[in-house]
Simulated scan of single mutants.
Amino acid sequence: MLLVLLVGIAPWSIQTYTSGSVTFLFAWGLFTPSPPSATTITDFFLRFTLGLPDYILVWPLGVACYLVALASVVAGFVFDHEDVRLTVAGLACAGLTQLEVARGFSLQPGRTALPLGTVLLWAVAAYFYWSRAR
Results as ranks from 00 to 15, higher is better:
Phe26Met: 08
Pro115Ala: 10
Gln98Met: 15
Arg103Thr: 06
Ala102Val: 03
Ala113Met: 11
Tyr127Gln: 04
Gly76Leu: 06
Trp59Asn: 02
Pro36Phe: 10
Cys93Tyr: 08
Ile9Gln: 15
Ser21Leu: 14
Val101Trp: 00
Leu46Ala: 14
Asp80His: 11
Leu52Asp: 02
Pro35Gln: 10
Val74Cys: 05
Phe24Glu: 06
Arg47Lys: 14
Ser131Val: 05
Ala89His: 10
Leu107Tyr: 02
Trp122Ile: 00
Ala125Cys: 01
Ser37Pro: 00
Thr32Glu: 11
Ala102Phe: 09
Ser131Arg: 14
Gly29Pro: 00
Pro35Arg: 03
Ser37Tyr: 10
Pro11Ala: 09
Leu91Gly: 01
Tyr17Val: 03
Glu82Pro: 13
Val84Cys: 05
Leu96Pro: 00
His81Asp: 15
Thr118Cys: 04
Leu67Ile: 08
Ile9Ser: 14
Ser72Pro: 01
Leu99Ile: 06
Tyr55Val: 01
Gly90Met: 04
Ser131Glu: 12
Glu82Lys: 03
Leu86Met: 14
Ser19Thr: 15
Gln98Lys: 15
Ala64Gly: 01
Leu70Met: 09
Thr32Pro: 00
Ile41Ala: 07
Ser106Met: 09
Gly8Val: 00
Ser19Trp: 14
Leu61Glu: 12
Gly104Cys: 04
Asp80Ala: 13
Thr87Ala: 09
Thr16Lys: 15
Phe26Asp: 11
Ala126Arg: 09
Met1Ser: 10
Val88Pro: 03
Pro53His: 08
Met1Cys: 07
Leu61Thr: 15
Thr87Cys: 07
Gly76Thr: 05
Gly90Asn: 06
Thr16Glu: 09
Ala113Gly: 02
Val58Arg: 03
Ser37Asn: 14
Phe48Ser: 12
Arg132Gln: 07
Phe31Tyr: 15
Ser106Ile: 07
Cys93Val: 05
Val84Ser: 05
Leu61Phe: 03
Ser131Asn: 09
Gly20Lys: 07
Leu25Asp: 01
Val78Leu: 15
Trp28Cys: 01
Asp54Glu: 10
Pro33Leu: 08
Val4Asn: 02
Gln108Gly: 06
Ala69Val: 03
Thr16Gln: 12
Ala10Tyr: 12
Ser13Trp: 02
Gly76Lys: 06
Phe77Tyr: 13
Ala10Met: 07
Leu3Cys: 03
Leu52Gly: 00
Val73Asn: 02
Ala10Cys: 04
Leu67Asn: 09
Ser34Gln: 12
Tyr129Trp: 14
Cys93Ile: 02
Val4Thr: 03
Leu116Asp: 05
Val124Gly: 05
Tyr55Thr: 04
Ala133Trp: 12
Ser131Tyr: 07
Thr42Ile: 12
Ala10Asp: 12
Thr112Met: 15
Gly29Tyr: 10
Leu116Asn: 09
Ala38Pro: 02
Val88Ala: 07
